[in-house]
């Protein structure tokens, strides 16, 4: 596999938070490389640094030291505007609490990133239509988030995350707030997107079902990679 396949490279990253007078070392010199098409699950105990790592990869936060690179671009060297564009064009987010925009319909939520990119309306409509059909969201287009179930909201969030064709989708505990059946369905969808369309996913999770579906498991303990294994087939 060549270096051009590397989507995410985390190099010796530390992250220290100040909580009052207490210094919290969330990440301690962590290294990680994620390649195109991987479906990676980050797991480990609470407070091990999984979410912190996702936030750094997603350009939502800055490391205290070390480097994070997305497709070879060092995030620390990018301006605020460039980071906005990077998040818009190359990174998709799926949050634990869905975080759909409440004043937008399901369709508008799903198309919003493409609209920001300036994608033409017809293309957006076709793309969102395909994704909604794939995810079983037909007929939900005009519903507002508060008119959707948790599972439906999370599917819309996934559609929003992948509609614009990002290099990587970061999903923070995507099944934490849904029932087992919905969780299975969401994992089916994400697995299919990974297999059929080569979408790269990085999950943070405690959920054994997610770990079962992941092709690569990275165990994080005390802010370091404690284990990194690939599942064959």
């Amino acid at each position: 596999m060549s270096t051009s396949d590397v989507i995410v490279a985390v190099e010796g990253v530390t992250k220290i938070y100040q909580q009052g007078r207490v210094e919290v070392r969330a990440l301690r010199g962590l290294d990680l490389v994620v390649r195109a098409g991987e479906l990676t699950a980050l797991y480990g105990p609470s407070g091990s640094g999984k979410t912190t790592l996702l936030n750094l990869i997603g350009a939502l936060d800055h490391p205290t030291s070390g480097r994070v690179l997305i497709e070879g671009r060092h995030l620390g060297a990018l301006s605020r505007r460039e980071l906005s564009h990077l998040r818009r064009d190359r990174i998709g987010f799926v949050f634990q609490a869905y975080n759909l925009i409440p004043v937008l319909t399901a369709y508008e939520n799903a198309e919003t990133v493409m609209a920001l990119q300036g994608v033409e309306a017809g293309t957006r409509r076709r793309r969102v239509g395909e994704l909604f059909a794939e995810m079983g969201l037909e007929g939900m287009e005009d519903r507002r988030p508060d008119e959707l179930s948790g599972g439906q909201q999370q599917r819309v969030a996934i559609a929003r995350a992948i509609a614009a064709g990002p290099a990587v989708v970061l999903a923070d505990e995507p099944t934490a707030n849904v029932d087992s059946e919905t969780a299975e369905r969401l994992l089916d969808i994400m697995g299919k997107l990974n297999e059929d369309h080569g979408v790269t996913f990085i999950f943070s999770t405690h959920d054994p079902r997610v770990m079962e579906r992941a092709r690569r498991l990275v165990r994080i303990v005390d802010g370091r990679v404690d284990g990194d294994g690939t599942r064959e087939g």
Partner: peptide, 16 residues
Amino acid sequence: IREFGVLKAIGYAPGQ
């Protein structure tokens, strides 16, 4: 404020 964070996470620039 959380919603604005989400907007920025999905790619809204500060000006937007």
